Amino acid sequence: MRERYASGIDDATAEKMIDLLNANLANVIDLTLDGKQCHWNLQGSGFIGVHQLLDDTAERIREVSDAIAERIVILGGMPNGLARRVAKDSVLDDYPTNITEVDDHVREITNRYKKVAVKLREAIDAAGDAGDEDTADLFTEASRIVDKDAWFIGANAPKK
């Protein structure tokens, strides 16, 4: 383990949080890539608004991944965002490559945001239970961002 910069956190807790943070790092990196896949391939009514929105949401989710990676370093760990690890450890299935319609992409990417949000909320509880409130706060902020972007994207879906 690297030097730890977080005070008052024992080694066992730091290692547990590093694992939890790396698991969520894989999810948010995958979500970013899925958002770009969606961005590049959608077509149809409402295209330009969703296309531009996905650039904005990708930037916000990249900021989340940076915050998670930085917290890992603060705790003495090594962030692992390598493509192979992300592919292996993300909770998200492969993004479908056979859809083009805006409505289909909006539904697909919104569901992916929701799935990542569930994992972030689980991580809030796990970090709080472990006594690492700073990591719990980081996950809380990440959850707020992901929820808000799920809403922004999902609001483009046709009403049922």
Rank of each mutant, 00 (worst) to 15 (best):
I68N: 02
V28D: 12
E15Q: 04
N80G: 04
V102L: 02
D134M: 01
K88G: 07
V146E: 07
L138S: 01
I29L: 08
D34R: 07
A126Q: 13
E70V: 04
E133C: 04
F152W: 14
E15I: 00
N98F: 09
K159T: 09
Y113V: 06
E122H: 09
K159N: 13
A136D: 01
R71Y: 00
A6D: 10
D125A: 12
V146Y: 04
A142F: 06
L120T: 12
L20K: 00
D104E: 14
K115P: 00
A157P: 10
A67Q: 13
F47G: 04
P96Q: 13
V73N: 05
N41C: 10
G44F: 11
G76K: 01
I145N: 15
L31E: 12
A142W: 08
S90W: 06
A87T: 08
I145M: 11
A83Q: 03
V86R: 10
A67D: 15
A123K: 06
L31W: 11
I9S: 10
D56I: 07
E101S: 12
A127V: 05
R62G: 15
I29H: 13
G8W: 01
I153C: 04
K159R: 08
D89A: 03
I9D: 07
R60V: 05
V73E: 09
R85Q: 14
T110H: 11
H51M: 13
F139T: 06
T13C: 02
H39D: 09
L25Q: 14
V28F: 12
A157S: 15
A127T: 09
L92D: 12
H51A: 07
S7E: 14
I9F: 06
S143Q: 10
I124Q: 04
D149S: 14
N24W: 03
D149C: 08
G76M: 01
D129Y: 01
L53W: 09
P158V: 09
R60E: 07
G35W: 05
E133K: 03
P158Q: 12
D129A: 04
K160W: 14
H39I: 10
K115W: 00
K115I: 01
F47Q: 03
K16P: 00
G35M: 07
I99E: 10
K148W: 07
R2D: 14
A6G: 10
A155H: 10
L138V: 02
N156E: 02
L120S: 11
D149K: 13
V73K: 04
T110G: 08
R71N: 00
D55Q: 05
R84G: 03
I48K: 05
A157E: 10
I153M: 06
D147G: 03
M17W: 00
I68S: 02
K114Q: 15
D129N: 06
T135I: 00
N22D: 06
T110W: 12
D103M: 10
V28P: 06
N27P: 02
R121E: 07
Y113S: 05
W40H: 13
W40N: 06
A26S: 08
K16D: 00
A26N: 07
A6H: 13
D134P: 00
L120P: 08
D10C: 10
L120H: 08
I9Q: 15
M1G: 12
